[in-house]
Design a protein around this nucleic acid. Structure first.
Lengths: 233, 233
DNA sequence: TCCCGTGGAAGAGCGCTGCTCTTATTCGTG
DNA sequence: CACGAATAAGAGCAGCGCTCTTCCACGGGA
């Protein structure tokens, strides 16, 4: 391939971008199931079959949007964490949690696309696993930092992590949670599931008629979950 | 209306049941988005427009399946709890959590329908809120029982529940958590979000390449979450 | 017992979808 | 300039939800 991008390649990249932009707009306004290649094509003034020059199928377009979504929420969480004092571990946790929820509330359909029920028949390609880990990595880093600085006070009376999970904990240590003990690594999974569980419950309507001030509740819940891994405000 | 059901009413009820049965089978095998009124009609050997005599729209059929799903998981959780010794509160918690996950793993598409991203354009009708609360009610009852029996040991150093949440806590007390203090009621929400968050993460693929023995991890996570409300094994 | 109204079944049809294939055109490079 | 590759356009297929109209059969009141 030429180092200099040809004009054709440039226009191709531009059209590809335009397709994903319009698709994202449709996704944001009507949700994933209502996303239609034909409607995207209409919006761009091209014929529907033309889209297939750029995306082999609807699923492939969805995959592009999924990757975008993971990157967007990951970036939001990264920025929130970066704005905190490095040694304010509870503050970093709170900021990261708030950023995740804020992004989700602002982009509910994109959140549903990446953290909701998978599109049936859709198999996540490996391209998504990198971006998917981006926000988790932020949480992992701040917990590792807190542990290294002695900022984690373990809950009393915790039973040891069962054998079958030690391997998973080791893999987590190698990727996003350097240096932490098994029970912190496994606890981190539960805290993260809890954080995204709260967001999903809110966005998917499970908290309707139950929680009124969802933002206040979320802060409280996130703080409680942080205690699971010994992070106390 | 006559007390004695007419023959017409009986056959109508039977056909309605057959439609939901076939629809549930399709849902189980291919997911909600692939559920098609025409396919259901084909399976029953009737013409597609005939379905509309029994369900006004695809959404209405989905609503019936959603209610069924809530009832099914609710019943599973109820049975699991009922099989435990009444005063074994950690055991009841564990059994209820395991039942919820077991049902979800056995019926992933139905789980996705009720706890995953809502079908776009679909607004949950009020008929669903009763069944939706059924499994939560089991968790609430066992926590209330545990509290009344002095079986909850609060985590140390917990800050009081903020004012905005006291009202929500009161509503929870009146419905599914009689007698418990605010912090238990709010903690219960987080524990439940966490439990279903773990299930969703597992079913929706977020734990792929992260957790291998998901059942063992789930037990551990559920136990950790129980500690949030002071329930220790 | 007849009779008519109601509930149901069937079919055609509209506009939409994803996707494929064929044909025509444009564009960049050798 | 000419050729080959990339793109655009259009027709078409099968399926979808949903509507409407037509027809039939059953069953309760006269």
């Amino acid at each position: 391939m030429p180092a200099r991008r040809t004009a054709r390649e440039r226009v191709r990249a531009e059209i590809t971008r335009e397709i994903t932009d319009i698709a994202r707009a449709q996704l944001a306004s009507d949700g994933a199931a209502a996303l239609s290649l034909r409607a995207v094509a209409r919006d761009m003034g091209m014929v529907s079959s033309g889209i297939y020059r750029y995306f082999a199928s609807r699923d492939e377009l969805l995959t592009a949007l999924i990757i975008d979504g993971y990157n967007a929420i990951g970036e939001a969480v990264e920025n929130a964490d970066a704005a905190c004092r490095r040694d304010d571990y509870p503050g970093r946790w709170r900021a990261a949690c708030r950023a995740a929820r804020a992004w989700a509330v602002a982009h509910p359909h994109e959140y549903a696309l990446i953290y909701g029920s998978p599109v049936p028949g859709y198999q996540a390609p490996p391209d998504t696993i990198g971006p998917a880990a981006r926000s988790a990595a932020v949480f992992g880093r701040l917990i590792s930092d807190a542990f290294a600085a002695g900022g984690l006070i373990p809950l009393p009376g915790r039973s040891p992590v069962p054998n079958g999970l030690a391997e998973d904990a080791g893999r987590l240590r190698d990727s996003v949670l350097p240096g932490v003990p098994d029970e912190v690594a496994i606890g981190m999974l539960t805290a993260l599931s809890g954080v995204f569980g709260m967001i999903s419950f809110e966005l998917f309507g499970q908290f309707n008629n139950v929680v009124t001030d969802t933002a206040a509740y979320y802060d409280r819940g996130a703080a409680d979950l942080a205690r699971l891994i010994g992070l106390t405000a």
